[in-house]
């Protein structure tokens, strides 16, 4: 088992960068001048991806009153950023969740469930708090715990030990991590997303999703608070999927920043649970 930071980074660097299509989509989606036609032509280069995206676009989750028949329509109707999210979603699933992990305490299905449900929760939280960059929050939610799956893949014994500790002492995954002298899942995710050239609006909320008060840049405080709240909601719905053995509690800074109260918070949990009933296609992407 690797024990130094350099060893860990070396292991992480062994993970292949996303393929050309995904990299290009991430890049284009950050350019204001991108047109629907441009994005369509890139995605169409990968027929398998195109088919799976069309399947998602027509799924019960989006519940469109009419069927979408081509990719450019999907981009226009669902929006540029939603399409980007679907592309990254399909890629992330294929790259990290399509094989069995060696860990015994947590499965790739559990972790994938946690990521998708957090992403879905961001929609409820965004709507309830009047946040308009919903698509960015969705993607940040979907990637926020990518570090956990990478650690589980590269260092399964370490992750098992960590979860055993959490279980023995009724801790959250993150609290247990602090007891271990090892790079944590947030560090891993941050490193990876920088390497993959994700924009700041995705990287910052992932990096601070356990510490929303640490965000300095005012323009990222709201999205970070939303991802933090969504992570908590997902854990409330299924505590162990994220490797938690006690309920994580929302940080006060995020709670007051979003001006939440008991009723709005409960409504968010309910609406997330309702959305998840329609999101089968995401879990079996």
């Amino acid at each position: 088992m690797a024990s130094t930071l350099a060893d860990v980074l070396k292991e992480i660097d062994s993970i292949p960068v996303p393929n050309f299509v995904v990299t290009k989509v991430i890049e284009l989606a950050s350019k204001p001048d991108v047109s629907a036609a441009e994005l369509t032509s890139i995605i169409e280069k990968d027929p398998n991806l195109t088919v799976r995206i069309m399947k998602l676009a027509n799924s019960a989750y989006y519940g469109l009153p009419q069927k979408i028949t081509n990719l450019s329509h999907a981009i226009m109707i669902l929006g540029f950023k939603t399409l980007r999210n679907l592309v990254i979603g399909v890629y992330t699933h294929d790259a990290f969740f399509s094989f069995k992990l060696e860990t015994t305490k947590v499965s790739s299905e559990d972790l994938w469930w946690h990521l998708v449900s957090t992403a879905i929760a961001t929609e409820s939280v965004s709507n309830a708090t009047g946040f308009i960059n919903k698509e960015e929050a969705f993607l940040a939610g979907m990637l926020h715990d990518i570090g956990k799956v990478i650690l589980a893949k590269l260092f399964p014994k370490y992750v098992d030990a960590l979860i055993t500790l959490a279980s023995a002492r009724s801790l959250t995954y993150e609290q247990a991590e602090k007891e271990m002298e090892f790079p944590d899942h947030v560090f891993v995710a941050k490193y990876l997303l920088e390497k993959w050239k994700f924009p700041e609006i995705i990287r910052i909320p992932v990096e601070f999703h356990h510490n929303p008060g640490g965000v300095q840049d005012e323009s990222f405080k709201d999205i970070t608070a939303i991802v933090h709240a969504s992570d908590v909601i997902s854990s409330i719905l299924n505590q162990k999927a994220a490797g938690n053995y006690t309920l994580p509690i929302m940080k006060k800074e995020a709670w007051t920043y979003l001006k939440l109260n008991g009723t709005t918070f409960l409504d968010m949990i309910k609406s997330t649970r309702d959305s998840m009933k329609k999101s089968d296609s995401f879990f079996r992407i």
Binding site: G63, P65, Q66, H73, M76, G79, N127, K134
Partner: peptide
């Protein structure tokens, strides 16, 4: 029907309906 969908999803959307394209803007508050 599309308008209701846009409002439900709170998503701005361009939707081809028949031969035209429609730009839908949802109006909603917190």
């Amino acid at each position: 029907a599309m308008g209701r969908w846009v409002l439900e999803k709170k998503k701005i959307s361009v939707i081809p309906v028949d031969d035209s394209a429609f730009l839908f803007l949802p109006l909603f508050s917190r």
